[in-house]
């Protein structure tokens, strides 16, 4: 796509001097995303061969890495790491929202919790897609970003619970009925499949691959975005901060080029792995 590349390069050149950068994600949040996508890729890469254990690529992959024993070992390892990350996130929410009574964690403009504006935004955005209205302006988190967050949150609970129920089946059987042990595999694999299909197609495109962010939204790697990007992508938040006089407090450093390059390499790798897994998944799914 030469057009897009030119557009990106042109935009970068404009920002060379006197450009301001604003903090969007904290270091902890960026690390959290790193742990999330690393373990997610690992879980997908080890989970898919189990889900499609009859397919040729699953068997080949299993043979390469040392059979089922190796696959389940890494699947559990990634699962534990991700579970710890999830618990740390819950602790952060608890500390910020309940202990420190920080505003905007559970509701308000900066919260991840859906509100009436999100409903209006979905409708408005889709009307804009087909040329029926003006493009809505977004706050700190747009509705599709909130959906991504809650999809992962719900997925963590559902996939996590069903996964641990299988891992420690005799223990869970003490308070679960027998048929639940059958159900957890169905739930685990279907929900896992949904997560994989969603992240590797919808999230990739919505967040990284769509025009305007192509080939990758670097903000999750650098933590900052340029003033222009901020203004265009999250106009509502920019306007609110400006009117409240809080814009200066959000000023950040221009990201060092090594960080940008690092983010590009890591992000591109993750996306490529994701797309490969997506193709394998779809091929196996269709054949089923």
């Amino acid at each position: 796509m030469p057009d897009l590349e030119q557009a990106t390069n042109g935009a970068t050149e404009q920002h060379k001097t006197g450009e301001r950068f604003f903090q969007r994600f904290t270091r902890e949040q960026r690390y959290m995303h790193g742990v999330l996508f690393t373990t997610f890729l690992g879980l997908a890469a080890t989970g898919l061969p189990m889900r499609f254990s009859e397919s040729i690529w699953a068997r080949k992959f299993a043979t390469q890495v040392g059979g089922f024993g190796a696959i389940i070992f890494f699947h559990k390892l990634f699962a534990v790491v991700l579970s710890i990350a999830f618990l740390l996130h819950l602790k952060e929410i608890f500390t910020r929202g309940l202990l420190h009574r920080e505003k905007g964690v559970f509701w308000g403009n900066t919260s991840m919790v859906a509100n009436w504006k999100d409903v209006k935004d979905i409708v408005g955005h889709m009307r804009w897609f087909v040329g029926l209205g003006k493009k809505p302006v977004f706050e700190r988190y747009a509705y599709w970003e909130k959906f991504d967050y809650w999809a992962v949150f719900w997925g963590m609970l559902v996939i996590g619970f069903s996964g641990y129920a299988m891992w420690f089946a005799p223990f869970f059987a003490r308070f679960l009925p027998g048929w639940a042990l059958n159900a957890v595999l169905v739930i685990h694999s279907e929900e896992g499949l949904l997560a994989i299909l969603f992240i590797f197609s919808i999230h990739f495109v919505n967040t990284h691959l769509r025009p305007g962010s192509f080939p990758m939204d670097m903000v999750i790697f650098t933590g900052v975005e340029s003033e222009e990007e901020f203004k265009v992508k999250r106009s509502e938040e920019y306007k609110r901060l400006a009117s409240e006089g809080k814009l200066e407090a959000r000023l950040g450093e221009k990201p060092p080029s090594w960080l940008v390059n690092f983010g590009r390499v890591v992000g591109t790798t993750a996306i490529l792995i994701g797309i490969i897994l997506l193709v394998l998944t779809l091929s196996a799914y269709i054949r089923e």
Partner: peptide
């Protein structure tokens, strides 16, 4: 759930891509 979520977002995202 799987079909619903994916269908909605598939339509949503394809339309968005074209419009963007």
């Amino acid at each position: 759930l799987l079909a619903g979520v994916l269908t909605f977002f598939m339509i949503h995202t394809i339309l968005w891509l074209i419009r963007a």
